[in-house]
């Protein structure tokens, strides 16, 4: 796959069809992959592809990265799950489909965290999303690299995240409160979860609005709760469960649980799953007069 990938990257850069290829390369000690931005066709051998390619590179297509945008039209090496974020960005008018060349990688899963890698991809080191993945054959692409995957995801999604969400749902209100207060109390307000999320692209985040100070700046349980609730709320109907926020959290707050919970709510209430169709509006910017609820009195 690497060979095809490099050839394609070379061809795209040489022809001038794209000005930069955003992909994965090795770090110096070859223990993990790191994003690379290739502008010179001579450098395409830097590109790699393996189960350590966990980063969701669609982040670099957002307006947070003006210097990358300035390079010119990009090609991006993307797994199906990353493409879901690209699709959301398109539906939110961040750029047009034709503004990016998508090199879709067929995928057999990645590791949850790079440090778990022992040289072999086993189910126990893969994140929940991979076990339920329906985009191992990438769904929106300009070019596909790799053999077709024959994997079919289980009919009812399974895995740690789903189990834990169900478990929390079955608990009492006060137990859930205790659970989250404890988890969020570790938050240090580093905002890595926001920084890494391809959908947190506001130029001025609510955390930076200080007239008034909407989100308390010090890391204490009350402000941490408001930050984490606000972050979750801003991603309703948008989050693709790519898992980058949780992966980047230095204190391991299980953000995937909240994300997945809200994905379930959106599915149930609006019959919508984000990141599949670049022509459908995200659910929170539209409405239906027939939206159902049973709690507004």
């Amino acid at each position: 796959m690497e060979k095809t990938l490099r050839l394609k990257a070379k061809e795209l850069l040489e022809s001038g069809e794209v000005k930069v290829v955003i992909g994965y390369g090795w770090n110096r000690s070859k223990t993990r992959t790191t994003p690379v931005f290739i502008t010179d066709p001579a450098d395409v051998d830097t590109l790699v592809w393996n189960p350590l390619c966990v980063n969701n590179l669609s982040l670099y297509l957002t307006r947070k990265y003006k210097e990358i945008k300035a390079l010119g039209r990009p090609a991006i090496v993307a797994k199906g799950c990353d493409i879901r974020n690209i699709v959301v960005l398109i539906t939110e008018g961040q750029f047009k489909r034709e503004d990016v060349f998508i090199i879709g990688m067929t995928c057999n899963g990645t590791v949850y965290k790079q440090d778990l890698w022992k040289g072999e991809l086993t189910p126990n080191i893969m994140p929940t999303k991979c076990h339920n993945c329906d985009v191992r054959n990438p769904h929106v692409t300009d070019f596909v690299v790799g053999e077709k995957s024959t994997f079919t995801p289980p009919e009812v999604p399974t895995g740690m995240v789903y189990d834990k969400v169900k478990d929390l749902d079955s608990k009492s209100q006060s137990e859930r409160w205790a659970f989250w207060v404890k988890e969020f109390s570790r938050c240090v307000k580093c905002y890595a979860c926001r920084q890494v999320c391809p959908l947190c692209y506001c130029e001025r985040c609510i955390t930076e609005k200080n007239m008034p100070q909407w989100i308390e700046t010090s890391a204490h349980p009350r402000g941490n709760l408001s930050w984490n609730l606000t972050r979750a709320m801003h991603l309703v109907g948008r989050c693709t469960f790519c898992g980058e926020c949780e992966r980047s959290c230095p204190v391991n707050i299980p953000l995937n649980l909240i994300n997945q919970k809200m994905i379930g709510v959106v599915k149930e209430a609006f019959d919508f799953k984000s990141g599949y169709d670049e022509k459908t509006h995200p659910p929170m910017i539209v409405f239906s007069p027939d939206d159902k609820e049973n709690f507004i009195k």
Partner: peptide
């Protein structure tokens, strides 16, 4: 209403 549907479930999940 859409926003409330999301928010209500979020608050419930958070244990409010």
């Amino acid at each position: 209403r859409r926003r409330w549907i999301g928010f209500k479930h979020l608050m419930e999940f958070a244990g409010i």
